[in-house]
Computed example of a mutant assay.
Amino acid sequence: MTKGGVAMWPLLILSVLALSTIIERSIFWIRFLLKEGKILNRVLETAARNWDAAPKVAKEHSKHPIGNFLYGPLRLDNPDPEVFHLALESSADDELALMRRGDKVLEAVIALSPLLGLLGTVLGLITSLGNIQISDLGTSSTTGVTLGIGEALISTATGLIVAIISLTFYRIFQSLWSNQVRVFRKAGSELEVIYRQRWSDSEGNPSAFSGNTPSKFTETFEQ
Rank of each mutant, 00 (worst) to 15 (best):
S26D: 04
A87P: 00
L44C: 02
R49G: 06
L86Q: 14
D136F: 01
L76Y: 05
S20L: 15
V83A: 14
N179F: 06
S62K: 13
A47D: 01
N50K: 11
E82I: 08
L86I: 13
S200T: 12
G124E: 13
L76E: 10
V162P: 11
S215R: 13
Q197L: 15
E151S: 10
V109D: 01
E222M: 09
L112T: 10
L70M: 15
T121A: 15
L86H: 11
S207R: 12
I126H: 00
P81W: 12
R31T: 09
E82H: 13
F84N: 03
L44R: 06
M99L: 10
T127H: 12
A7L: 07
G72L: 05
G138V: 09
A97C: 05
G148S: 07
N41T: 06
L115M: 15
N68F: 06
T158W: 04
R100D: 06
E89C: 04
A97V: 14
G159T: 03
D77P: 00
Q197F: 10
S140C: 00
D52K: 13
G204R: 11
Q197H: 09
A208L: 05
K56Q: 11
R25V: 13
R185S: 15
S210D: 05
A152M: 04
P65Y: 13
D136G: 14
A47V: 02
F84C: 05
K56C: 00
K186E: 13
S20W: 09
R31F: 09
G124T: 09
I154H: 04
E36M: 12
G150N: 09
F84E: 03
G72E: 11
P65A: 11
F84P: 01
T142C: 01
A18E: 09
E60Q: 07
I66F: 14
L118N: 07
S20P: 05
S215W: 04
L70P: 11
T121N: 12
N179K: 14
K59M: 08
G159C: 06
W177K: 05
I30F: 15
G37S: 12
R100G: 14
V83G: 00
